[in-house]
Design a binder for these strands. Sequence first.
DNA 1: TCGTATGTAGCCCAGTCAAC
DNA 2: GTTGACTGGGCTACATACGA
Length: 742
Amino acid sequence: MLLDFNAEPRPPRLALPVGVGIGKTRAMQRSVAGLLRSEALRGRKIVIGVPRHDLAEEQRDAFHALDVDAMVWKGRTAPDPTPDNPERLMCLDPSAPFDAMEVERIVETTSCKVTRRGITHICPLYNSCGYQAQKPRLEAAQIVLTAHDTLFHQAPNELGAVGLLVLDEGFWGAGLRGTDGKALLTLDGLRPHLGTVQCWTPRNQEDWEATADLAAQRERLWKVLASATNGPLSVVALRAAGLTPERCRQAAGLEHRRMRNPGITPGMDPGERRRRIASVLPKEGEPWAPPNRAAAMWLLIAEALENDHDVAGAVLVDTMSENGTVRCLRLAWRADLRDGWGAQGPILHLDATLRPELVTPFIPEVTIAEPLMAREPHVRVRQILRAPVSAKALTPGEDAKPRDRSAAENHRRQVSALIALRAASLRGRSASSPDLLIIAQKAAVDALRAAGLPRNVQAVHFNALSGIDRWHSVAGLMVLGRTLPAPVTVEALAAAVTNCPPLSSRGDVAWWYEQEERRIALADGGVHALPGETHADPTVEAIRWTICEGELIQAIGRGRGVNRTAATPLEVDLFTDVVLPVAVHEVLDWDDVCPRRQEMMAASGVVLENAADMARAFPDLWQSHDAARQQKARSVTFCYYRDLSNSRTSHSSSVVAYRPAGPGQKDRTARFDLVLIPDPRAWLEAKLGPLAHFEMIGGEAPQPATPPIADARGGAARPGRSRGRHHPRPPHEKAQQAAGEG
DNA sequence: TCGTATGTAGCCCAGTCAAC
DNA sequence: GTTGACTGGGCTACATACGA
């Protein structure tokens, strides 16, 4: 690490885009351990922010293995389960901190412990509190690991001086406020009159000077609010009303003085606490603008005036309430990384899907290094286009049309069969379970689990993947779909990041993104072009990319492709039309891989050849003998079905000959996968009734497993459709390859 | 005698795509 | 996002031949 951690006045701030699975966290841990031994930090601590507490605990254990003293710091409302009480939180009386926050007091001195005039007020649960119990470890530790979210809240005093703040993985989302649309200020609460602008001294005496100053700025703002139409506050109107950045910042400070001190102390009887809180808050139904929220509004306006744009973070909207329509200002803004956690000192940020547009607002003057990526020669990627794996295609809501719901049922059945066949083809290929990891949207994962997953398969959903290493040895990954909120949602996030209205790019289509040509880079040097979403505003596009492409990159990274060898290859199947910065070995169409009903039958471990038996054994696939017969006549035998028929992907398959009892029954054969159906005779009798004849004939000699999807293209490929265009390799490259092969 | 295999005609519906 | 037209697959119904 070539950083001077004591540089003045500008400490080093470095952001490193490091590819998924390269081992950036391990390298960081070793560097941090070395840094502590070098004493370059002069005894100051290192704070490491990670997305979630479970990742913090993993890193703590890794530091302990490096003989470094590390601890995980959790907030008051974080889970702290015990065998007796799995619901336990760090704070044993969460109502006390919530009450303190309602009247905007410091939680520690109003809920936990404080000494006033020689008298110590203390929470009765203080000595058994998980939050307090971690403080001695916090004081002693060299490294403090905590969730990104914590870094945007006040640091505990016991932390002491911080010499380096490490931000592991993308952190910007934890710093956004109001993006759920719930940070509202009613216009009634902002209308200037004594009840809404009265300020108080710290001793709860009326502060008339502050009240007059705040009233003057509220009057200016009211001129704008009273005549504005819905949408972002206009910078022209705000300026015309006489507001300036200085006046807004002054008003932000004055807003805090509207809250009187209720005089609540740690250990106070909850009834008395609520009575005191009620005495400083307006009565139910009276207009009120929470001071913290009003202060945030002023700061958003000040920033917009300074930068000469409308206030995207403060938007006039109509909301519905019990009393009808209420006009409100909807706020969304960006919190700052807190100084107490080291935000003003040296910062190192590591993220595989880092976007400068989302880092610089939080870390000004950050230096963003060139991306560091690694080759993955033992990873094979297939991308399947036009797969029905969107939320609508797999899991439409209850209010969806019957036609869409039945289509979704078919899609789920097809995807389940595909998973079962893929799992069979990869069985035993992983050093430890599972062999196959499915990554999809949460609703899709729930639906697939409900339908039943093979034992060697695990399914997880997007958005909870970063940093997890437990699937490093899976043999296969199937990534289904993508995450992509509508433009209006992403634009709202961007407004919170920048406070600036996004550039519009959507023309006549107001509800979706524009499309532009994207190119899948093929491993053989060619490209496959297809349309992809984009947004004209750089920040909106950065967020869109992070949520969509970034999450898919994180998903692929779970397989730790960088660490694979010829003996432990990884096969990735991408069921999405999104173009990613990875080399793709094969681009297929859903028609090429979509399992037919014969293949679904094969997925359960048996291939029957008799149409009547097919209909009897699988009534959900074929409703009648004729239906099974007709499909048998029409269908060509493809990939998965053929795999089991030929015993190529199922090393344990066996052919049996049988004849049901009764007149007119002829001899027929079937092939069974003995891992899934160990007793074919019992299975046949359960499905078809007593047998007049049964004989195990045996299977063909086992052959090396072949990826089933690749087989779909070999030989009997279906006439598939594709959204994109395949561009062959330039002739000179083909010639070079031919020369090399020759 | 019963059940299966094979062939053909025609209706229904799911999937797709263009237009709005 | 919705709607409507188009298309091909899925299924039923009918008939005939064959084998246990």
